[in-house]
Amino acid sequence: MSKIIEGLKYSQSHEWVKVEGNIAYIGVTDFAQKEMGDITYVDMPEEGDDVIAGEEFGALESVKASSELISPVSGTVVLVNGELEDAPEKVNEDAYGAWIIKVEMSLPSELDALMDAAAYKAHIGE
């Protein structure tokens, strides 16, 4: 069973969003990290980059695979989690602790299109 946390928003492509006012922390779900296996690298945007809902903002890499990261919201990256640069395994160890980017949202209403914990649980069929 994959861990799902109440109070977060979830995307179809297995990103989670933690909302604090106009700021969104974005990471990948426990389900996604399990599917991926040992993560060897997190390809992240640069601070100041714009992200667009539904579009790629980076990638997770394992030894034999690369999986796109899709932004659930639009806005500007205000911070990337530099810790993951040297320690990508943190995504495996604690998917909900290892946020990847912090975004200042330009269109917070996009959050309404995301799933809550219950809907995401149904989405992954667990």
Binding site: T40, E61, V63, K64, S66
Partner: peptide
Amino acid sequence: TLQAREQHIKREK
């Protein structure tokens, strides 16, 4: 190593 950069994984990307 670092094979996730390569064509057999990333294909057109």
